[in-house]
């Protein structure tokens, strides 16, 4: 059934299509104008990213080095869970963090029932949308994005790009080097729904809280500036 359906559908589409060689079609596609990106809310890309994370109802923090990063994670865990435990994918960048210094006890692997917090290290992040990008795989199992109540995501400021087009340039480079991942996930905020009378509720199926920690050198007052831009 499927084979005859396929031939029939393609026969109709060939009649309807304009024809021309693959090269000609590709050339035509290249000639189309590009979609203008919106004006960023701040000229500095880190600030624009953090502002958009806040607009997406995420929370933000910054950490200059690895020691500060584990401290920031420990503080978050203690604030919300009075705990030092979390689950994280087998990402070598996460494994190399000095967790013991801050008393954090990570378990590396896929999330299991009852684990409330997962930690991810973003492959890249997009200032335009305030989204982080992860690839499915050992370093970040898809369920770690979706099943916890809180997701903490580390973003290296060197992995921050301004626009979605720049994000795809990076992703395409990664795919050329390492092949196509099963899933590419752009996440821009906690899971939400407005399906009951239009009232916005967080934690529909995925995390109800989404916390971003930006790693690397950033201006000292960047958090305050981002918060003041949103309030």
């Amino acid at each position: 059934m499927s084979e005859s359906a396929r031939s029939e559908i393609f026969a109709k589409l060939r009649t309807a299509s304009r024809g021309g060689s693959a090269e000609a079609i590709d050339r035509e596609r290249q000639c189309l104008q590009s979609a203008p990106a919106p004006m960023p809310p701040a000229t500095e890309v880190c600030e624009a990213f953090l502002i958009n994370v806040l607009k997406n109802r995420g929370s933000i923090d910054c950490a200059a080095g690895r020691g500060e990063t584990v401290k920031a994670v420990a503080q978050y865990l203690y604030q919300y869970f009075r705990s030092h435990r979390l689950v994280a994918g087998n990402d070598p960048r996460l494994a190399a963090m000095p967790w013991r210094d801050a008393g954090v006890l990570p378990r590396f692997g896929g999330i299991e029932t009852g684990e409330p917090v997962a930690l991810s290290f973003a492959h890249l992040a997009v200032a335009e949308t305030g989204a982080i990008v992860t690839y499915t795989g050992k370093a970040n199992p898809a369920a770690n994005n979706l099943l916890p109540e809180h997701q903490i995501v580390l973003v290296d400021r060197n992995d921050l790009v301004a626009t979605q087009e720049q994000a795809w340039t990076r992703i395409n480079q990664d795919m050329e080097k390492r092949g196509r991942p099963r899933g590419i996930n752009f996440i821009a905020g906690p899971s939400s729904t407005a399906d009951i009378e239009g009232q916005l509720v967080y934690g529909a199926h995925g995390p109800s809280s989404w916390h971003i920690i930006l790693l690397g050198d950033t201006p000292a007052d960047i958090l305050a500036r981002a918060h003041s831009a949103v309030t």
Binding site: K138, A143, P181, R182, I187, G189
Partner: peptide, 16 residues
């Protein structure tokens, strides 16, 4: 909140 691109079945080494 979620914009996802899926390519196919799980790859070698994937945990889910």
């Amino acid at each position: 909140a979620y914009t996802s691109f899926y390519s196919g079945p799980s790859r070698d080494g994937d945990v889910d």
